[in-house]
Design a protein around this nucleic acid. Structure first.
Length: 296
DNA sequence: ACCCAGGGATTTT
DNA sequence: AAAATCCATGGG
């Protein structure tokens, strides 16, 4: 019986917990001193240490480029942070509170499917739905003693072959037809996700938004979390609240005003800034926002 | 603009 | 204990 494969990835400024638990990916769970999850068809266990991250996988692998790519350990975070407006006290607070938060580079299909399931769901519930979906329709990964049973994220073919009722059994409600439609378009190649990788952000966004159940917000999540489009700026209720309260004195703002503000204010890596604001609001300011809804 | 589409965790009563 | 609220929204 071969052993798990194991490696160490050197990384500075990498907050593994914040990165894996900031609502980008929905399959990581705490396990001992680290985190376990599935990337592609690999079961993965990750742990942070003083010099970076250590990783174990099953089945064993000899190369790790897929993992460094997923985790984006080679990204020059300092260069991203340096591109942000220095005179923004709100963003600065988020940056120091969430130091080491990173954007992952996920598989486009898994990311698209997950965010189709995310609409008006809380992160805890999205995790539950995705878990059910993987157990029901994902390929089981090879077993190894000491490694819990795990499933790959369902292939589009596997989803496309089901009925809407099968999918609703995974508690996804009205999102089922949208997931089914996306899977079928990927399978019949009227949507080729790999092609979008080289497209300008606006064109790729437009293409993704042709899918039912995919509006601007979900398209931006896929662009940012799967394609590395750091100019994509998803605006959910938390980020909208943050932007309104922090930059618009609590006033209502329309989409175009918001878009031109985020582009010009946060710059070419606006999506990264968005992730810091989102995580900061959710984890560090949650209680204070509820207590003082207009002061923040 | 308004309203509806699961459902469960969380918060409030 | 029960009820209300909320949610990485989109579409009619």
């Amino acid at each position: 019986m071969p052993a798990l494969s194991e490696t160490h990835l050197g990384a500075r400024q990498y907050d593994l917990a914040a990165t894996l638990d900031s609502g980008q990916s929905f399959r990581w769970q705490p396990d001992g001193n680290g985190w376990q999850g599935v990337i592609g068809s690999q079961w993965v266990w990750l742990q942070a240490d003083a010099h970076g991250l250590s990783a174990r996988t099953w089945p064993p692998v000899r190369h790790w480029a897929w993992l460094t790519h997923y985790l984006q350990v080679d990204l020059d975070l300092d260069r991203v942070l340096a591109s942000f407006p220095a005179a923004d006290p709100h963003l600065s607070a988020a940056l120091s509170a969430c130091r080491g938060l990173r954007l992952l580079r996920q598989n486009p299909w898994e990311c698209l499917a997950s965010f189709i399931l995310s609409s008006t769901k809380q992160i805890v519930q999205i995790r539950q739905i995705v878990d059910l979906l993987c157990r029901q329709f994902g390929d089981p990964l090879p077993h190894h003693p000491g490694v819990p049973p795990a499933w790959a994220f369902p292939r589009p073919e596997s989803i496309a072959a089901r009925s809407e009722a099968d999918l609703r059994a995974c508690k996804m409600g009205f999102r089922a037809p949208a997931l089914l439609a996306a899977a079928r378009r990927v399978v019949n190649r009227t949507l080729v996700l790999d092609e979008l990788a080289g497209w300008p952000t606006d064109a790729a966004r437009q293409r993704l938004m042709e899918l039912p159940g995919v509006g601007e917000k979900i398209a931006n999540c896929v662009l940012l979390f799967a394609y590395g489009a750091q100019d994509a700026f998803p605006v959910d209720v938390w980020v909208l609240k943050a932007l309104r309260e922090l930059y618009f004195a609590g006033r209502q703002v329309d989409r175009s005003t918001l878009d031109s503000f985020t582009r010009s204010h946060f710059g070419p890596h606006a999506g990264y800034a968005q992730q810091y604001l989102f995580h900061y609001m959710r984890v560090h300011l949650r209680r204070r926002v509820r207590a003082t809804p207009h002061a923040l």
